[in-house]
Design a protein around this nucleic acid. Sequence first.
DNA 1: TTCATTCTCGTACCCCCTACGGTAATGGTT
DNA 2: AACCATTACCGTAGGGGGTACGAGAATGAA
Lengths: 257, 257
Amino acid sequence: MADFTGRILPLLWRRSIPARKAAGRPPRLSVDLVVATAIRLADASGLDAASMAGIAAELSVATMTLYTYVPSRDDLVDLMVDEVFGDRGLAGAAPVEFRERVRFYADRTFAMYRAHPWLARVSPVRPPIGPGMLAEREYMLATVAALGLPIGRLDAAALTLAGHITAAARLEAENTLISRATGLTTATWWQQRGELWETWFDAAAHPTMTTVWNGGGFEAQEQDPYEYGLCLLLDGIETEAGHAVSRDSWPRTAGDA
Amino acid sequence: MADFTGRILPLLWRRSIPARKAAGRPPRLSVDLVVATAIRLADASGLDAASMAGIAAELSVATMTLYTYVPSRDDLVDLMVDEVFGDRGLAGAAPVEFRERVRFYADRTFAMYRAHPWLARVSPVRPPIGPGMLAEREYMLATVAALGLPIGRLDAAALTLAGHITAAARLEAENTLISRATGLTTATWWQQRGELWETWFDAAAHPTMTTVWNGGGFEAQEQDPYEYGLCLLLDGIETEAGHAVSRDSWPRTAGDA
DNA sequence: TTCATTCTCGTACCCCCTACGGTAATGGTT
DNA sequence: AACCATTACCGTAGGGGGTACGAGAATGAA
């Protein structure tokens, strides 16, 4: 299993490799088992809990044993990410109509980030180029391609939509992570900073905030920024594609992002 | 200077505290000096380089000395963040017209993330409630308030715009960080994964990607998702406010996000 | 039986944050 | 001048982390 010299691709695509020759001492674990265990630990106790030592202990194995299956912790995280990306299930049965496909994507994505909030702690750039990540790209490209957009705009449109949805899901997940780590709800956290307004806040320097505050503008939020923004983006892309547009209401998907 | 029991607020607002009584041994450093040094290290070598040991060494002081000025590393990062937030200069002279104000905000924000890319590694939720962060909120609220939006929608509109711009700036900064850390450009990184297409990619499972690829859709990007999305959001918000809208082109601000 | 092959993992090194408690330096008071 | 409350300084130690190295154990094949 060893002898990976900075080569993560064969690990990401390991399920496409057909056979396996038996030679030498048989392994006690498998890449899949290590990755699954890491995901389970991260889901339960955060990405930090999925340390090499933690995973090894969970598997009743010495820490260094894991390096037989995985080149490094960073690569393991890549494997974890592509695994949950694939589990989102965008490759199977899916809606056909444009908005339904987008909604399906959003629902699955929010569900993924809720089940695996540690994803919000993994860098969104240069993601693992594995089957899970490619399935996502294929799905979103197919979604906007069905609208009849010119080929030069497909990628931008797909990235815009996926980016907006993902950003909202990540924000919600990050919120969950911090609430868990601190044991404080956002409301409690604000209460702890209550003295801000009495002691430190300078109303004269923040006239608009003061006005909004006094008018109750911070409490009665009429719109969710995520839904509002998504609506605008969908309308714009459909218009771009020359379809008739009706700005119907977008069903709720996000919790409190 | 000691005796902060989880009280970060007085540190964030330390410049609002007028006098300082002299008693006991005089300090060699100051909070401002510690924060400035940490920012300098993080700018030059990443957030990890701004470790307590690293900062102390830079100041020719023992590591534990820093804890006289700052309760913990996390609080120090909060201080760093609010410092650069304030340095953005949104509190001073600024444009008056709506779109110019938004552009001003975007320019300053991208400049901030380019000067301090480590910001992208700091959680965007529950930010430090200091003068720098409040100045930003005041600026964006004043910007959308001038449009005449109802008070219940001001916060959502401000958050939508700020969120879109910030997300793009963070993505660009994260890109910079990874390029620095790995010493690889994104192009080189893709080259390393060139074998993906020959060895692992299954064209039959990704028909749309294959079509777009063969049509050159991944190379000739006609639009920047950031600019495109921002345009749509601005149009929508202005429409909401009942203004006349002309979808004029939004000047380039982002680099390659 | 021997051997190449492969997996297992103890040790060691370097990095991080920070609790604790002792020590040094000051201004004010006696 | 001596003393003291106050504040700053920091050495030590303990608990995390990732992983390079190399010796030992288990297997199938020759």
